[in-house]
Design a protein around this nucleic acid. Sequence first.
DNA 1: AAAAAATACGAGCATTTACTCGTTTTCATC
DNA 2: GATGAAAACGAGTAAATGCTCGTATTTTTT
Lengths: 219, 219
Amino acid sequence: MAPGRSQQQRSAPIRRQERGRRRIAEILDAAEEVIAEVGFEEATTNAIAARAGVSPGSLYQFFANKEQILDGLLPRYTESSRDFWNSRLNAEVARLPLAELLDRVVEAMAAFKVQRPAFWVLFHGSPASPRLTEVAEEVRAGIAARVRDVFAIREPQLPDERLELLATVSIAIVRGVFPLAMAADEYRRAQLLAEVKGALLGYLGPVVGYGAVADDRRS
Amino acid sequence: MAPGRSQQQRSAPIRRQERGRRRIAEILDAAEEVIAEVGFEEATTNAIAARAGVSPGSLYQFFANKEQILDGLLPRYTESSRDFWNSRLNAEVARLPLAELLDRVVEAMAAFKVQRPAFWVLFHGSPASPRLTEVAEEVRAGIAARVRDVFAIREPQLPDERLELLATVSIAIVRGVFPLAMAADEYRRAQLLAEVKGALLGYLGPVVGYGAVADDRRS
DNA sequence: AAAAAATACGAGCATTTACTCGTTTTCATC
DNA sequence: GATGAAAACGAGTAAATGCTCGTATTTTTT
């Protein structure tokens, strides 16, 4: 028995059974929890296994190494991020008065932090590993693309490069203020969020307009 | 010989000789280099010792643990930060037209990053250890105080709380954009820095005024 | 010069942590 | 029910890392 089975024979792609797929999900759930609490680098594989209620050996039955756990988590982040921002940054919202648009988006982002803390850690965390940086960058690029679309609706004649820059900087501004806001008590958080909305209004207003945008379908 | 000398007998505060003080400085220099390269958490004590050209044992002759190396570095950061910002954020600069004021400060900050990379890592790095967070927070508070003073000169009748909030948010905005800018190529860096100046102008202009401020000493 | 204190060394300890291995148990397929 | 693959286990390994210890050398003090 136990023929040099190095966990990963190519040529037989491992036929996962139901049980296995369930375990994978459990391990990823556990990883998400632990990462939300201590960050990715500090999340030990043993801790993740323990949280999932499996042995370290079982964890490595499904993931070749720690990085692959991150890879397994990635789709969750990108998907939930995509869904979230698709529903918040659509054509309809884009046409609102800028102040209201910003209010909605900033508040939504604050709510998202509470809802998906692990995502938050990834998005705002330190770029400890190159892989992690890459992942975070991808997520950010996705959000930037949505924001850019919103700006494009408000001011269609702006060149793409300018739109992209506006989106990137807007997100960076929020990224700068948010950690402060979310760590503070409720009163100060409200203060800071109000400020960042004001700052974005001052930054974006002159470029993409303050008012609502008419939904003219004349093209 | 070697009587249970546990490196740190109270009652005899260790009389450092010249050689020792030199070593301490060398070790701190080395620590600064290594930290600038890999960050504080990833900087191993053995690597710092090796870089300083001393044995691990010697390092621990002067520092009881890794955290005390950080403590030894702290005054350098706070002092160089204080000197730097004192010379950049003075009453004279505060009275310049806002656009020029911002231009100077943002450019100075970019230059500072190149000049003191370890400081940069501390200031923008991850809040990995509680101690590190505390230190970074202290440095930031110092800068915020200077920025607040500048705003106070431009708009003396603003309440202190408002000034403080403006300063904090301004710094947070810069903190959000800077990592992006400094990691990018020269062209994009210039773009991003121009944007952040514009954003700050839009944010602060309505509150602290766009123009130069007269140096009226009538009070 | 002698004693004491400070400095210096570097092999090695203790701990942590990603990961393995040999084995046993559960499941799917015949 | 027999057989083999997948799943599960958990003690154990190798490497990294903060730090110590016994000892040797240099400097200061007496």
